[in-house]
Design a protein around this nucleic acid. Structure first.
Lengths: 127, 127
DNA sequence: AGAATAACGATAATGATTATCATTATTTAA
DNA sequence: TTAAATAATGATAATCATTATCGTTATTCT
């Protein structure tokens, strides 16, 4: 893939914003936030730049199961928890999840390079 | 939810078909297979019945990350592996994944009832 | 058998995301 | 420093998987 990028305020601000929040937002949410500073921002620009950042490995996508993608600037391996009630997405701590790739590799005839681990249930406020 | 179901050949055949295959198919794939027996089958019927079976807990949905949902009649807890190259979805064996819910529960202020664990990499044929 | 209603097929609608395209901003190099 | 090259933008149309609608058909219940 050709990574011949130019700078853009929109992309920088998008990345900054995503790094500053902890709530795994949708493209739409990011769009409305950024719209405050860039009144003529286009939703297409948000999607475009999210994909650019994703392909650069700067951010990850989180599938929630409701049809929308969530985005996350925390790229160190971690798991997510989705509340069945309020649909909030939070990071949770599950240390032994680190070892799963090795185990999956040694017990199956595949090469595992990555994983996605999502838990479901009730968050502290909904339980 | 009101589970006042009536029998239908289409739904029975769909469920039979899904139980008979190991390749986590899309709605579209199931539709084309069933079309061989029900020449005037509608795609809407496939989606409708997949949702009915899903809500009855007879099947599960698997998110692959390519925008399409996959369906699986194996409802006992198990993990999936998605090949980055050929996109095939296969079941893999990762025993210690069983313990993750308990660990997630004890280390975080949430109630975990479910999880979804997907690995990515190269399958035996693509590696 | 007849009423009640779930399921059907056909197809329009939805909604998130992507593609297109003319214009603008950033970078490069003379 | 300016002009050419081209990446990024905003606006909007297109895509594509899935869901909703609606008139008709099949199943179930009495």
């Amino acid at each position: 893939m050709n990574m011949n990028l130019k700078h853009s305020k929109q992309r920088d601000s998008l990345f900054q914003l995503l790094k500053s929040v902890k709530n795994h937002p949708t493209a739409e949410w990011l769009y409305h936030e950024l719209k405050k500073d860039y009144s003529n921002l286009s939703l297409a620009t948000v999607y475009r730049n999210l994909n650019v950042l994703y392909q650069c490995g700067e951010i990850i996508k989180v599938e929630v199961g409701d049809g929308t993608d969530r985005y996350d600037a925390t790229i160190t391996p971690h798991c997510h928890f989705i509340c069945d009630s309020c649909k909030r997405v939070i990071d949770i701590d599950v240390p032994s999840a680190q070892k799963l790739n090795d185990e999956a590799n040694s017990l199956n005839d595949v090469i595992v390079t990555n994983k996605n681990l999502v838990f479901y249930g009730l968050c502290s406020e909904c339980k």
